[in-house]
Design a protein around this nucleic acid. Sequence first.
DNA 1: AACTTATCCAACCGCCGCTAC
DNA 2: AGTAGCGGCGGTTGGATAAGT
Length: 227
Amino acid sequence: MGGVAWTEEEDYLLKKCIQQYGEGKWHRIPLLAGLNRCRKSCRLRWLNYLRPNIKRGNFTDEEVEMIVKLHKLLGNRWSLIAGRLPGRTANDVKNYWNCHLSKKLNAQEAEDHRELTKDVQVIRPQPRNIGSSSMKRMSQSESPTDQGVQQENIGVTFDAGGQSHNPESQQESMYPGLNQQGMVGCEFPMDFQLEGFETMASGEGSSSQWNWDDLFLDMDPYNEFSS
DNA sequence: AACTTATCCAACCGCCGCTAC
DNA sequence: AGTAGCGGCGGTTGGATAAGT
């Protein structure tokens, strides 16, 4: 294991201490419980192992599907993802992702990319003269290599992952929420997406102004996704 | 049976944001 | 304004175990 494994006695002491004094105040727990562990170890042990109602064993298909969808939207925000999976911990989700899904999805993406580019002639960005006004515009936005290179003439957007998207056929795209800035979208209902993504895309607010926690407070992906 | 390699997952580490002083 | 202490989070590590040779 990554460190010194917890003994049954330590587990018992920690459990008893938390039952007596409650969660929180982690800095006091080691002292109160008589454990030679740091506050973080105690908290982690409780959250990932000792807490009641923790679901162990394999992830169900529904849970896996949920993880994939939430990860597509949230990225590596494991605690938020785990919050939507009753009984699962952030560590469980993270481990499962790292062990199973990341490899699987990487392989699938590589395969999809091969399929997409199989019969397609790759059009690479050509050097071109850029007028001063265009330069000004570019300097105000992110580097095109970061968020997608616009192929103005053919109307196809290339994102950083090398996939191409035609804005006109976006409705049929695998990622209907993908905007022209190359922002990764999702398969959520459009009325949900637009509230957040349009504002971000239009530049009215930076992504740092967004609080994802708020965004999810009233959302139940079990129902939202399955419908 | 012995050894090597791959996989899993519990635990640790470092960083971040918040709060109190 | 600066700083210390805290809870919380995500990334990484490394021991145990399974699978392969």
